[in-house]
Write a protein that binds this DNA or RNA. Structure first.
Lengths: 215, 215
DNA sequence: TCTGTATGAATGAAGG
DNA sequence: CCTTCATTCATACAGA
């Protein structure tokens, strides 16, 4: 067996799924969401009951983790979008492929600031990178020698994806306008993240250098 | 070819999604999965601490579900240059240390394709990494003035990971943080991806067994 | 089998 | 906007 067609997708740029599969996926996500929710509840209940019985014993991360200090990661030098932020960014990106205006950037930044420290530059860079990357896909493969880009939309799309590059497709030519993924099964994605993440959501996690995980 | 169309009625309709959309889904699922995992762990920890540890009390979903569903999901494979390809690459690298132009990349890719599956991105990445690595070697000795640049190969080789952990600028050396995977705040999507991602078109994650979750 | 190392890939940021 | 750099993550592979 050759290392052949594995990689990021030795195939087309589009995946096809039936309604059934779609449904299954949707269900799965929902399930996860529900589980998370319930687990959180359980955890809360348990925590409350034992008043911190074995705090810092063998499980330094047991409680602080969920309740407050989830962020205590080795400090990072560069901004790393949090899931919630990324989600929003992606969403916005879909809407306007073009570069967001200056004001728009500010706006977005404010929005994202709700989920964590972020600067306009971060947002700007993100969009720039995102876009650049999307474009890169197009220059993937020049299939036939000398052929001009005469392919039909679909065709070209396939061709491009054929070489399986990164994981970012070109949303510009997205044939289907179905933007509603499974954004939120039942409970909000953000909701969940909010629980797990930072409740306050105003704490620059990468600046929390010495934050005692244990309080 | 009609894309994005689906007839809910017949159930035969297919949905087409782009890689990006696919990516979104995967990410979301990944996030949920990871969260669930972590929550389960916490729950276990808490439960264990309590005498009456509620093992399998009213929590049918606590671990069976996750351990089975979450962990087994896909894995990604990465391109591995074949000896022949590597040889060519090295050879080219010697000629022009600089990053090959885009056209050059294409050219090289075609060449290497003779020896096995490969994409332009692979080539691109290879050169990028190669170059970065080279530079890295030379910068092994910096801080100390004087001292001739006696970056012996061995030395430079050693520096591979040396810079990692404790080089954190403002962070204290936190040994425990090492395995603490709960980087929640900015829990890398990449990380998450790795856990659930489906390897291209090999394993359709939506075909995972439909666990009975809870009915 | 488990652990450590080499290296492909992802991505934020800077330069031009 | 496009290209390049730097850093980091994750995995294939080798050694114990």
């Amino acid at each position: 067996m050759e290392e052949g067609r594995f990689q990021n997708g030795g195939g087309l740029g589009v995946k096809v799924m039936t309604d059934e599969q779609m449904e299954m996926l949707r269900k799965q996500i929902s399930v996860y969401a529900t589980i998370c929710e319930q687990l959180v509840e359980m955890h809360k209940a348990l925590s409350a009951q034992q008043d911190f019985a074995g705090m810092g014993l063998g499980n330094p991360y047991c409680d602080p983790l969920l309740s407050s200090a989830v962020h205590k990661i080795g400090s990072r030098q560069r901004w790393t979008p949090k899931p919630a932020q990324l989600q929003i960014l992606e969403q916005i990106f879909e809407q306007c492929n073009a570069t967001p205006g200056r004001q728009k950037i500010k706006d977005i930044t404010r929005e994202l600031a709700q989920h964590g420290q972020i600067s306009e530059t971060n947002v700007y860079n993100w969009f720039q990178n995102r876009r650049a990357r999307s474009k890169r896909k197009q220059s993937a493969v020049v299939p036939n020698n000398g052929e001009s880009e005469m392919e039909t939309d679909i065709e070209s799309l396939k061709e491009k994806k054929t070489r399986a590059e990164d994981s970012q497709p070109d949303e510009n030519t997205t044939p289907m306008a179905d933007h509603m993924y499974f954004n939120s099964p039942d409970i909000g994605f953000d909701q969940l993240m909010g629980k797990i993440e930072s409740p306050g959501s105003c704490i620059p996690y990468w600046q929390m250098e010495q934050y005692d995980l244990f309080g």
